[in-house]
Design a protein around this nucleic acid. Structure first.
Lengths: 165, 165
DNA sequence: CTACCTGCAAATAGTTTGCAGAATA
DNA sequence: TATTCTGCAAACTATTTGCAGGTAG
């Protein structure tokens, strides 16, 4: 998996006359060791905890490259910071459900949804390129049971919770 | 229409012990004289061209209030600036089609889409609160005819075009 | 050796905030 | 009169960029 990604990036770099460097490789390893979403700053923090090192500037520059190479997808979670999504399958759809209670993000897919969007787009006179759906919702578990695992976990991890709306 | 909005805001303000001021009223008048999307800065520019006046700080502060009062909706168009959408009907769905060629934004609605999203959300164990769909697409007119009215208009108006991807 | 890459610090863009004086209820 | 508002400028946050020295090919 990781080897595949390194190869894909190397092909991309070569095609552009760019180089493979220890920093770039370290950044990729850390990003793709999990498939979680992350922000530039979170990534930088994770890197500085390893024995590899890369400056903030390099992190930002590399993120730009990865997005350009389609190895990473930039998503909007309604915060003021960009969030990145490791994007393994070149899917044209990026659908997210965001829990208003705990900030948990779920990705989902549905063929009907994609087909319907596709039709609507064509009816409006356009050729669909990519689609992303963002659903904000309340946790049913929290509502019925009064507590929710995600929320508890988030509090333990000290994550900032969604600002109340 | 405008009167209705002013009333809605006044109710909101009273409920919070806040005040009605000339700046706030001027900002509302300018926002709701059209139903176009806008950024904070565009709004500020439009205001300074009138005989009313309000500082950038006040514009930002008022935008915050309007969003809180549900008279305005904050949308993400993939740019680095927040965009606001006058939101007349308290619709829970905010769906946008963005033309990659000219940056034109179309709003659309579809009951099937909303229903489908609603079902998917519940199946995942959540109660839907709001949904927004963002479709990026190419202009069919541009592709087949080699030019597109929106693009021409955008160039004339000197708008910044979408960065190529 | 040459062009690209990195790290630093300074620059930028968009937005927020503290404060003193002005205005509303 | 007691708060709340406003405008200004300074602060802030996330991100980008210029530059001098380091490194891959």
């Amino acid at each position: 998996m990781l080897a595949e990604i390194h190869e894909k990036l190397n092909t991309f770099l070569k095609g552009k006359g760019l180089r493979s460097t220890p920093q770039r490789n370290a950044i990729i390893d850390i990003i793709f060791e999990s498939d979680d979403h992350f922000t530039a700053d979170e990534l930088w923090e994770r890197i500085r905890k390893t024995n590899s090192k890369a400056s903030r500037a390099t992190v930002y520059r590399t993120l730009g490259l990865l997005v350009e190479a389609n190895l990473l997808y930039e998503i909007d979670l309604g915060e003021d910071t960009k969030t990145y999504d490791p994007n393994f399958n070149d899917k044209p759809a990026h659908n997210h459900l965001i829990c208003i209670d705990c900030g948990k993000v779920l990705e989902f897919e549905d063929n009907h949804l994609e087909l319907l969007n596709d039709c609507l787009t064509r009816r409006m006179g356009f050729r669909p390129k990519s689609q992303s759906i963002r659903i904000e919702a309340n946790c049913e578990e929290l509502r019925t049971k009064g507590c929710c695992q995600n929320l508890i976990q988030a509090r333990i991890a000290g994550k900032r919770l969604p600002k109340k709306r």
